[in-house]
């Protein structure tokens, strides 16, 4: 899942300062699950922005909408009914959603209300952690199901480095050393011998190295 986190309120407020009527759009997918941009967050942000305006002696009108998925043009199309009545759009979806709205409605300013952070998993209620960087060439089969690219601070292919101590990364006692985890997992799986095999240098072209990526399924077109 894509995770995101709401931007500081003053940043959002300063973006929309010139406008009196805004359309605030949430997304019922990833950002709902990570509690950053679902229906509830839209309502909270809407109230907060209105209160900021009140403090400034202004009146802000907010149209709240939450789409099933902001990254699909068909869903985004449903905003067309409201777009003429507003001065700007604020999106609480990930960057994909913001761009989809901007693409469809070229005539209005679209502002992001969240920072899209990473692809991650929820460790427990209220905690999300990075798990994947979309490198385009998955090697989890070699590393016992723990990704050194997303979870090692240095993205080492053959770790750990000298900064690993007591199972933690030197950047923070809160961060597990990915290679320590990989070693423990390999031990548990009884494949310690694989650890000695050197993983060859990674080809970064399937990642961002080859420019913006695209997936095409001919059969579905």
């Amino acid at each position: 899942m894509i995770t995101a986190e709401r931007k500081p309120l003053d940043e959002i407020a300063s973006c929309i300062e010139p406008y009196n009527r805004i359309l605030l759009v949430g997304c019922n997918e990833c950002v709902t699950v990570c509690a950053a941009g679902g229906r509830k967050e839209v309502a909270m942000l809407s109230s907060a922005l209105q209160m900021v305006s009140m403090k400034q002696g202004k009146t802000l009108s907010v149209v709240e909408m939450t789409l099933e998925r902001q990254c699909d043009p068909e869903y985004v199309e449903s905003l067309a009914l409201h777009i003429d009545g507003v001065d700007a759009v604020v999106s609480m979806a990930c960057g994909c959603g913001v761009q989809e709205i901007a693409r469809r409605f070229g005539q209005v300013r679209v502002f992001p209300a969240v920072n899209t952070k990473f692809m991650g998993a929820s460790e427990r209620a209220g905690v999300w952690a990075e798990r994947c960087q979309g490198c385009g060439d998955c090697l989890l089969g070699l590393t016992g199901g723990i990704c050194p690219i997303a979870r090692c601070s240095k993205r080492l292919m053959n770790g750990p480095c000298g900064g690993s101590g007591d199972g933690k990364c030197e950047i923070s006692g809160e961060v597990d050393c990915a290679w320590h985890l990989i070693w423990e997992r390999m031990k548990a799986l009884g494949i310690e011998d694989r650890y000695e095999e050197v993983i060859s240098a990674k080809d970064w072209r399937p990642a961002r190295g080859g420019g913006p990526r695209k997936i095409i399924r001919e059969d579905l077109q």
Partner: peptide, 8 residues
Amino acid sequence: QWMDEIGI
């Protein structure tokens, strides 16, 4: 935290 951000 919200209140702080809003400035109330």
